[in-house]
Design a protein around this nucleic acid. Sequence first.
DNA 1: TTGAAAAGGTGACAAATATCATATATATTT
DNA 2: AAATATATATGATATTTGTCACCTTTTCAA
Lengths: 231, 231
Amino acid sequence: MGSESRCENCIIRQFNSLRAMSKEELKQVSDSKTSKVIKKGEAIFEEGEKLNGVFCVREGVSKLSKLSSNGKDQIVKLATKGEVMGQRSVIAEETSNLSAVAVNDMELCFIPKEAIVNTLHKNPDFTFEVLRLMAHDLREADDVIVNISQKTVKQRIAEAFLYLKSNYGEDEQGFLILTLSREDIANVVGTATESCIRIISEFKKKGLLKSSGKKLGILDEKKLRDLAEGF
Amino acid sequence: MGSESRCENCIIRQFNSLRAMSKEELKQVSDSKTSKVIKKGEAIFEEGEKLNGVFCVREGVSKLSKLSSNGKDQIVKLATKGEVMGQRSVIAEETSNLSAVAVNDMELCFIPKEAIVNTLHKNPDFTFEVLRLMAHDLREADDVIVNISQKTVKQRIAEAFLYLKSNYGEDEQGFLILTLSREDIANVVGTATESCIRIISEFKKKGLLKSSGKKLGILDEKKLRDLAEGF
DNA sequence: TTGAAAAGGTGACAAATATCATATATATTT
DNA sequence: AAATATATATGATATTTGTCACCTTTTCAA
């Protein structure tokens, strides 16, 4: 086993709460963790499932979503390299309220909950770090609530593209690095797929977006921003 | 100063994270806290304000809301006896993302952040308890997101009444103990005040709700529940 | 490599919801 | 108690968004 497969040496952890663990604790985590490769479209865990640990994203992006009674999926969060999924359920000792599906090919580590819970009760720095990140997630969730209930679908789609650009960046030709299907975008925004397609088409016609194959790119960020703000 | 004004003796704390504090820590909190009486409609803190501590609700209910760019308020959470407001901002060291306004006359304790942050870094049990409650809030926020984006206004209003009943109860005559204005209900649900009024009128005509003065009561809980579920 | 399946696209229409205007009831202040 | 402000109510109408039907393009597996 190469040394890069040890949590102690993993750069990913610099981006999440694991960085607050001691060498000792990390060693324990590393000894109990398992690595997983997940193909695009595959499920990592399902809503209602009891999680016996957390998942640390090493590569790729996962959508965390919840199925509503009418059969539609609402994407609540996208989890990226460095983020940990499933802590909420492990901490609250509840089944997961969300399901996680890979948006593209992923690599992740599974860390059994014992290693986490142990440290949570012993290392206040670690617990505080987890708390800090959860406080951040909660703020973002509040923002999503306000956006969904107060902005139009057009505004929210405009925002979604700005979010994709600022969080995942664009390639040399100006196309967004993270490509989501129209359906996924609709599920992030909370609208019907057809409405989403229609608005994206409109944005293309108006010169706000460009496309090439499956890729989409932002052409006029300022106008998109104005639109998102309601002008 | 009566002994009931000491945090060590306060029953309220049994309902929140403060119960995980040691006698010693509670003493420190108690010595630094101040009590406040807030009249219905008064603000406790504003969006964007830097909070120098947290507020523990001893009596009454507060609405935590966020102003959107179109001038409407979205109520994200109602905080009740035993709940602590403002921890998110104190923990993340950010200005508040929400403002808090008293829904009825309130009594609360202000605890300066030093007392909290100190304990957060020293007492893992306390930190874990705060974390557990925040995990719970986050789950609720996820549920709100799904509800707002997937359910109709009618369904959400039905849900709001069921929530008010199960969380605040009803009096001997079957009227909800917590009375919210139609505007507040609209802001919880994320709709226009007029739409909210219209639907409440409809519910009354259909025999699902009754009213007397400002008070509203649930007449047919089962039908209300079916409606909320989409039948 | 060729079909089937999935994703993207568009029109027509229906349904849900917001907005504006205005009226009435209720609460609050003087 | 009158005057004023605020909350509730309702109609008419506009706007937004969803739904259904159908078509084209792309993707992927046999």
